[in-house]
Simulated scan of single mutants.
Amino acid sequence: MSYLSTPGSPIYDQLVQEQGDVLAEARKLAEEALQQADPAQYWQGALPHRRTPERVPQG
């Protein structure tokens, strides 16, 4: 017999009732993070050239 609780066990069900479904929320947030990161990993463009401000001689 395993001492680890698995989803669907009475202990897990009680914790979900008390604390909310933390595992489902973590899965949802991980999926959102992957969706946001996916386009970034394929980005191949260069950063737009930023013009350096010209220095004004002080004197």
Rank of each mutant, 00 (worst) to 15 (best):
L29N: 07
R55T: 09
Q44V: 05
P7K: 01
L34E: 13
T6P: 01
D21L: 00
E18H: 06
D13K: 14
A24I: 00
E18M: 07
L4W: 05
Q44G: 15
Q17L: 02
V16N: 01
D21N: 12
G20R: 02
Y3A: 15
G20M: 02
P48M: 00
A37V: 05
G45C: 01
Q14R: 11
W43Y: 14
R51T: 07
G59Y: 10
L47C: 03
P39T: 05
V22K: 07
R27F: 05
P53N: 14
E31V: 01
M1E: 14
P7G: 03
P53F: 10
I11W: 07
Y3C: 14
V22L: 10
Q14S: 11
Q44F: 05
V56P: 04
T52W: 12
D21S: 04
S9L: 03
A37I: 06
L29R: 09
E32D: 10
Q17C: 02
L47F: 08
E32L: 10
D38I: 04
P39C: 06
A24G: 04
A37P: 01
L4P: 00
A40G: 04
E54L: 11
Q17D: 06
D38S: 08
Q35P: 00
Y3P: 09
S2W: 13
T6A: 07
P57L: 06
I11F: 12
R51L: 05
L15D: 07
Q19D: 12
Q36K: 15
L47I: 02
Q35G: 03
S5F: 06
L47D: 07
D21A: 01
Q44K: 15
Y12F: 09
S9V: 01
M1G: 14
Q41F: 15
